[in-house]
Amino acid sequence: MKLKTIIMGSALFVGAALTGASAHAADKIRFATEGAWAPFNYIDSTGTPQGFDVDIAHALCAQMKADCEIVTQDWDGLIPGLKVRKFDAIIASMSITPEREKVVDFTNKYYSGGLRFLGRTGETVDLKNLDGKTIGAQRATLGAQYLEDNYSGKAKLKFYDNQDNVYLDLVSGRLDVVLSDELPTYNWLKTSGNGDKFEFKGDAFMKNDNIGIAVRKGDKLKDKLNEALKAILANGTYQKINAKYFPFSIY
């Protein structure tokens, strides 16, 4: 291959690369999820996003009779990505917080959670005094923010790109305590094979942690989603999905 052939072919290639940069059809709704927050959202071995969030998104789309696509995006890129229109909604178990509400709009809650500490089985942890302990959480989550606000300068805080890496470091012993949402941790204790080595410490708190779907500020999609959400709650679809993952109601 000579350089000139390359140059001639390049025009085609560049064109092909930029076709990705076209405006996309307005009626297709693109939901972003994280894919590292089992059982709410995770990626299976065929590369497809799965989980409670994904099921809810599909149910909402069916209700709205809309064409939908689920894409995955690292957690700390979700809100920035929504702002620059890489997708239209975030359904990734995102808590509705005043900070986030400054930059995005949220639908009504589609489930509620709470924060809870996790530590080694049998180890007594004084949650009021975690000085000198290493505590881990996922970057840009409610848990991380809580740690920054309450333990900054006292305990050693470590923030991760995703929750799976938090667990990896808890198991390896780099972390003493982890703060995260109660429900996924509940699932992790049950399914990861580490249930006997780790346990919840203390009670869940911030129980009024409402989880919503984020959309761009002022986007009319919010009203459509709220309506669809009301409908699937009323017709039993929601309860079916709930039962698939948890034996109790998480609404």
């Binding site: 990626i43 071995s45 590369g47 890129g77 990896l168």
Partner: peptide, 18 residues
């Protein structure tokens, strides 16, 4: 940034298999 190349596929595999 979420492109599913070798590295990201490896990350996904690690997160589900440890």
């Amino acid at each position: 940034v979420g492109l599913e190349d070798i590295m990201r596929k490896a990350n996904i595999a690690v997160s589900s298999t440890k």
